[in-house]
């Protein structure tokens, strides 16, 4: 006769952990973008002239024609909200005491969008098409990543 589990709490189990550690690098284009952000508070995109598309964050290749492109086109720092949503859950599915607003931001001169946190003195002013500017962290706290920007604030 096959035995059936009648008391799941007494089932034998073994607990363990996986000690996994990652160091991600930004890549060729991400490196240029991150350093400009960290050191100059400026945004660099990559322009494909033949497709007339400026990618932000920059890529090393145009996604449409596969031509090689470089992160040399200055964009922003201001931009506009393309879309937004209000988040009540954190990254671990925990309920947030203060909901956050996250949006897609198209920087001036860019054709692609960045995801970032949106803030406004008057939350009702967060709207599609609203103009925003980046709020940078203090220079000593920046590491060349997108979170060197605290948020994009509605002007």
């Amino acid at each position: 006769m096959r035995e059936r589990v009648t008391q799941p709490t007494q089932m034998h189990h073994v607990d363990g952990t996986f000690p996994v550690q990652f160091i991600y690098t930004a890549g060729v284009a991400g490196e240029v973008f991150g350093k400009a952000l960290r050191d100059k508070e400026s945004f660099l995109g990559a322009r494909c002239d033949s497709c007339a598309v400026t990618y932000v964050p920059p890529r090393t290749y145009c996604e449409r024609c596969f031509a090689r492109i470089e992160a040399t086109r200055k964009v922003g720092p201001q931009g506009e909200i393309v879309s937004f949503t209000e988040s009540h859950l954190g990254p671990h599915n925990e309920r947030l005491a203060d909901p956050e607003t996250w949006g897609l931001i198209r920087l001036d001169g860019a054709d692609t969008v960045l995801v970032h946190r949106l803030t406004a003195k008057d939350p009702s002013r967060i709207a599609i098409g609203a103009r925003v500017k980046p709020i940078f962290r203090p220079k000593k706290d920046r590491t060349g990543v997108i979170t060197d920007i605290e948020s994009f604030a509605v002007l």
């Binding site: 607990d15 363990g16 996986f18 930004a26 490196e31």
Partner: peptide
């Protein structure tokens, strides 16, 4: 170079099953 470090908190609970459970 710019890096981002990430140490995911990966945990597992391996259920031994009927046969191995009783063996253990």
């Amino acid at each position: 170079v710019i890096t981002v470090r990430h140490n995911p908190d990966l945990r597992y609970r391996w259920a031994a099953g009927v046969a191995i459970g009783r063996f253990l």
